[in-house]
């Protein structure tokens, strides 16, 4: 079997197992390339119709192209779309340009997701994160049974699906499942090419610039690039060495830092 089919099979297996195991499950969709690929895989896993809700956490600061893409494909793919929004904080004026930007991600993403999970009682979430993506994500790992000495027997893990979950700091009581954890940025683009998966135009060069990673408009900056098509992007990735998230704002790191400091009683 070729590399991409192998990756696809692995992801589809995880998605089906997750659905089989949890009734109250949803998939998180940021409209970015990874979660859109995840959505594509979910559609393939269930022959075109995803049998569970798709959550979009809306900070109200996303690119207009993101909203347009979301609405277009929610309709085309017949998605059961749930939009999660922290209306209260948005009303209060929370935003990345407000004096202290450090709480913006926390309020508008983390807390909005928390509330959405609580409201709908989801027991598990499918997430499109990849291990090679970001330092914080590298910590996002597969979880294995613990022995009585509180040790993970990580070197001798049985190769089974339920090693793959990891709950995180911010949301309690639900499993997080990462069906594309094993893919790299380049795998994603090659798969996008093979499957002809639609992607928001933000990823493709306009006037010498494109976005390599997308999120909220005020906190993302484009990278210099002439890559105007999926094959251009693949070529660019094969020949460049800059970090994928180089265009994401400092604020994201700062937000993480603040959360860490708070967890130790500072701030």
């Amino acid at each position: 079997m070729d590399h991409l089919s192998e990756l696809e099979n692995k992801s589809i297996f995880i998605i089906r197992e997750a659905y089989y195991r949890f009734k109250d499950i949803a998939v998180l969709w940021s409209i970015g390339k990874d979660s859109t690929t995840l959505l594509w895989l979910c559609r393939k896993a269930f022959f075109g119709k995803i049998p569970f809700p798709v959550i979009h956490i809306d900070t109200s600061y996303k690119f207009p192209e993101i909203y347009a893409f979301r609405d277009e494909y929610a309709k085309k793919w017949n998605l059961d779309l749930i939009v999660g929004k922290n209306e209260e904080e948005i009303k209060k004026g929370m935003g990345p340009t407000k004096g202290a930007k450090l709480d913006c991600c926390n309020e508008l993403k983390t807390n909005a997701l928390k509330a959405t999970i609580a409201r709908h009682g989801f027991k598990a979430l499918l997430l499109g994160i990849r291990r090679d993506e970001h330092g914080i994500r590298a910590k996002e790992r597969v979880f294995s049974p613990r022995d009585e000495n509180f040790k993970w027997n990580y070197e001798d893990q049985p190769a089974e699906l339920w090693d793959q979950y990891k709950s995180t700091a911010e949301e309690d009581n639900h499993f997080r499942i990462h069906p594309i954890l094993h893919m790299t940025e380049l795998d994603i683009w090659k798969y996008v090419q093979r499957e002809n998966i639609p992607m928001t135009e933000l990823y493709f060069s306009k006037n010498g610039k494109r976005y390599r990673s997308i999120g909220c408009k005020p906190c993302c900056s484009p990278v210099e690039s002439e890559a105007a098509t999926v094959s251009d992007v693949i070529h660019e990735l094969e020949t460049s060495h800059t970090s994928e998230r180089a265009g994401r704002a400092q604020d994201k790191e700062d937000a993480y830092t603040m959360q860490k400091l708070r967890s130790l009683g500072y701030m």
Binding site: H134, G135, I136, A138, K139, S243, Y256, T257, K260, L261
Partner: peptide, 10 residues
């Protein structure tokens, strides 16, 4: 070490 929000950059 602490705080390291990104292992690659760190």
């Amino acid at each position: 070490g602490f705080v390291c929000p990104d292992l690659r950059k760190g």
